[in-house]
């Protein structure tokens, strides 16, 4: 079914889905938003792959090969790509492992950790390989906008989407960038 609605895709990479939860904090404003927006690939629709979209919202940083594939799919299909939240912008909590070598992390988790049974580092081809470090999105693809916060508030999601839908350059008020 063809519509004139703006197509929006969302995904979470190395993140906690907290940004998506916050997205839902738009509450009843989501109803109004759906008048203008149609969701493509997103945990909300369970669509597995992106079609060409207008806006892509990506939560989480990049910790493994699959994250890179998904991010590239978003970049290739979305006219506007937005890095959403601390992990997408800076690496966030998952990037705390960057203080260690990836080898140390795997050894701790699968070989030497407390309560490890049958110690071995997983090698199933189904499992995506970890990158040596966790990276923010803009180190692997071009990013158009950054929506900061851990997570960004529902108001901030609403503000950036409203601006884009109205064809304005997105701009967040100071209060939306003040976190304490």
């Amino acid at each position: 079914m063809m519509t004139n609605k703006v197509r929006v895709a969302t995904t979470s990479l190395a993140g906690c889905f907290g940004c998506h939860m916050s997205f839902l904090d738009m509450d009843e404003r989501l109803v109004g938003l759906l008048e203008h927006v149609e969701f493509d690939r997103s945990p909300l629709t369970d669509i597995k792959h992106c079609q060409p979209c207008d806006i892509g919202l990506v939560e989480g940083g990049l910790c493994n090969a699959e994250n890179v594939h998904v991010l590239r799919e978003f970049r290739n299909n979305c006219k506007i790509l937005i890095a959403v939240g601390a992990c997408a912008i800076n690496g966030g909590v998952p990037a705390m492992r960057n203080h260690y070598e990836v080898q140390e992390c795997l050894q701790e988790a699968y070989l030497n950790g407390v309560g490890v049974d049958n110690p071995m580092i997983p090698s199933d081809p189904e499992l995506p390989l970890l990158l040596s470090k966790v990276h923010p999105l803009h180190e692997v693809v071009r990013v158009d906008y950054y929506l900061p916060g851990c997570p960004p508030s529902g108001d901030a999601f609403y503000a950036i989407l409203s601006d884009l839908l109205a064809g304005r350059e997105p701009s967040l008020s100071k209060t939306m960038l003040h976190y304490d």
Binding site: L106, L129, L130, L131, S132
Partner: peptide, 9 residues
Amino acid sequence: ALETTRQLS
């Protein structure tokens, strides 16, 4: 960036 984990696995 995948070299280490390729070797480990």
